[in-house]
């Protein structure tokens, strides 16, 4: 996929790659954290993943909202991409957290508050993706997926109030605060910045790919129209641009 990205985006991608590699190297150069020990290095992975998951889902909900208002498909593409990326990062955050939990507390999973919350987020966004797959028409898919993600977005924060009231879910093993020296803070900030830039890059890549795809589709439609011997203007003025493809196939 070399033709998709502009020169600037390619350069941007390389800079981010180098930045993230540098941050990873810096993590291993750090002395072990105070009471986390060497395994505490996983935090420099875990925290950025968790942060980016929150950011992607927020942005996804925002673009869903924007799509419902404007009905511009590129906003749905952004929200869908953002939510999918969020799902991957949540899985990474959950996985890295579970490994750390196993090393420290002896069990991968113990329904800690945040484990419960992220588990529900995973359920919601997998349901979101399945819903998307089950609807063929793109505008309809955008509409229903956006409504679903916004509906979940509004009702799920109740968990914040509900979870502390349920004794079996109450406890948290997540450290509420821990001290870091300046060097560690710097590395963590670098990791957070790097991963955020990476997310922006993914969005730009996704948008560019979508543009190529849309252009290809438009070309196909154009070909179909030509093959059945109708002027493009006539069809467009009749508002048939979306259905033109199907109609063309049927007639041919």
């Amino acid at each position: 996929m070399s033709g998709i990205l502009s020169k600037r985006d390619k350069l941007f991608g390389i800079v981010i790659g180098v930045w993230l590699l540098g941050t990873a190297a810096a993590v291993f150069a750090l002395p072990p954290l105070e009471w986390f020990g060497y395994k505490g290095r996983i935090l420099f992975f875990h925290i950025p993943m968790a942060w980016i998951a929150v950011l992607t889902f927020l942005m996804g909900a925002w673009w869903s909202f924007a799509y419902l208002r404007s009905k511009r498909l590129e906003q749905f593409h952004l929200s869908s991409l953002s939510n999918k990326v969020g799902l991957v990062f949540s899985l990474l955050a959950t996985g890295s957290g579970a490994i750390y939990a196993k090393l420290t507390w002896g069990a991968f999973w113990n329904w800690d508050v945040r484990q419960t919350t992220i588990f529900i987020l995973l359920l919601i966004y997998t349901a979101y993706i399945v819903l998307g797959y089950s609807i063929e028409d793109e505008e309809k898919r955008g509409l229903i997926s956006s409504v679903y993600s916004l509906f979940a977005f509004v009702t799920v924060p109740f968990l914040i109030f509900i979870i502390p009231r349920i004794p079996s879910l109450k406890s948290t093993l997540h450290p509420q605060r821990f001290s870091m020296d300046a060097k560690m803070g710097l590395v963590l900030t670098a990791a957070l910045l790097g991963i955020t830039a990476f997310y922006i890059w993914i969005l730009r890549y996704g948008a560019a790919r979508q543009r190529v795809k849309t252009a290809e589709q438009a070309q196909l439609i154009q070909k179909d129209i030509e093959s059945i011997g109708l002027g493009a203007e006539g069809l467009e003025s009749a508002g048939l641009d979306a259905e033109a493809n199907q109609n063309g196939e049927e007639t041919v």
Binding site: K140, V156, L159, I162
Partner: peptide, 26 residues
């Protein structure tokens, strides 16, 4: 929502469960 998609009945359960969870647990 599920009525507009294919595989409605199983999808209906998948869509409902995560959203109802706060109420369900409570």
């Amino acid at each position: 929502m599920a009525a507009q998609a294919q595989g409605r009945s199983s999808l209906f359960t998948i869509l409902t469960f995560p959203i109802i969870l706060p109420e369900f647990l409570n």
